[in-house]
């Protein structure tokens, strides 16, 4: 039971981070919709947040 709660909590955190990043990328016009993006300021993984 405890292991299920711990694994479930870790999973929930991971999913929350992934979801938040996806939503942020879409809001900022970052490319979360296509991989292999070559335009850095539109590519979600490397938005230059200066």
């Amino acid at each position: 039971m405890l292991s299920t709660i711990i694994v479930g909590a870790v999973l929930a955190v991971l999913l929350f981070i992934a979801f938040k990043r996806s939503v942020n990328d879409l809001k900022q016009g970052g490319c979360s919709g296509c991989s292999s993006c070559s335009s850095k300021d539109k590519c979600s993984g490397k938005v230059d947040r200066q």
């Binding site: 991971l14 992934a18 979801f19 990043r21 990328d25 919709g33 991989s35 590519c43 993984g45």
Partner: peptide, 12 residues
């Protein structure tokens, strides 16, 4: 970029 995508929107 491909891995980032797989671990964010694809995962969700």
């Amino acid at each position: 970029a491909f891995i980032y995508k797989a671990t964010t929107i694809i995962l969700v």
